[in-house]
Simulated assay, not measured.
Amino acid sequence: INSFTVAVKIFPCEEYSSWKNESQIFTDTSLRHDSVLQFLTAEDRGTGPRREYWLITAYHSRGNLKDYLSRHVLSWMDLQKMAGSLVSGVAHLHSDYTACGRPKIPIAHRDIKSTNVLVKNEQECVLCDFGIAIRLDPALTVDDFANSGQVGTARYMAPEVLESRVNLEDLESFKQMDVYSMALVLWEMASRCEVVGEVKNYELPFGSKVQEQPCVDTMRDIVLHGRGRPEIPSSWLVHQGMRFLCDTITECWDHDPEARLTAHCVAERFNLMIHNNPVCKSLIRCNSNIPFPTGEFLG
């Protein structure tokens, strides 16, 4: 205890199902990853109406990404590494295999947002809050997935979720929803990077267009019917690395779920971008036609 600080997340009785789901997700050892919050144990405490359910995890004093971005401006190097760690975490969730090659059941987070990302250190983030995450087990039926309902945070919901037209027969659909939400978080990080020019005060995606907690109907009007997305000003695109990042973000929040990049593809892009490996530049295209920019990426 003296060398390792822990955090305790407490669920009241009425949130038992969320605690149960999150503890089941966490106890799958294949979830372990540097970009996923470290889980220690789950406990239930007390009796009767005072009964509580605990999740004990690693503690990160820098707090969540939303609060961190509101207080800090990121360097280009910080942005690459923090965003890269987030993408790496999502790619691990979605993967059929662990880093060492063992088979695993893919997981869809279903509520990726900046308050569900913790800042581990100056250049790393971890995903947290798996209360509505779902294991994409091929053994489950369409009815099992249909019963999971329309979940998540309205501001970060993908168009197909807002429209309640998710293809439940294709498990990739759940990953595509995560990628859309991840793109909004990447935009939040990009908006606070010093290379964009004038760094404005931190703002949530669609912040100037909606209330602090917009409802599904409001987001449906903006995202689904209006095809609206957070603004990417032309000043962001002067820096070649940021231009490439913005192109990636745009592909991740495409209106067509099947046109979006996979988290694995985005992770590959970040890996190659950070290491600026000219030998591998052709690989970074994945399923897009965007060329790898020339010039110095790390400046």
Rank of each mutant, 00 (worst) to 15 (best):
G89T: 11
S70T: 07
L93S: 04
S88L: 02
A83Q: 00
A108T: 04
T98F: 11
L65N: 03
D67W: 12
G101L: 13
A83M: 01
Y59V: 04
M82P: 00
E52H: 07
G89I: 09
A99M: 13
P106N: 07
K66C: 11
Y53S: 03
S114A: 05
K104V: 05
A108C: 07
G101Y: 12
G101I: 13
L93R: 09
L79S: 04
G89H: 06
I105A: 03
Q38D: 09
S88F: 02
T47Y: 11
Y97F: 13
T57C: 09
H72G: 02
A42G: 08
Y53G: 03
L86Y: 01
G46H: 10
H60P: 01
L86Q: 04
D111Y: 13
H94C: 05
L79H: 09
W54V: 00
R102C: 09
Q38E: 14
T98G: 06
D44Q: 14
Q38W: 07
L40T: 05
P103I: 15
P49G: 00
I107W: 05
S75G: 01
H72K: 07
C100A: 15
A99F: 13
L69S: 04
V90L: 14
T47S: 14
I107T: 07
P49E: 08
S88A: 10
I105T: 14
E52P: 02
Y59S: 11
A108R: 03
N64C: 15
G101V: 10
Q38L: 14
R110G: 09
H109W: 10
D111W: 13
T115M: 07
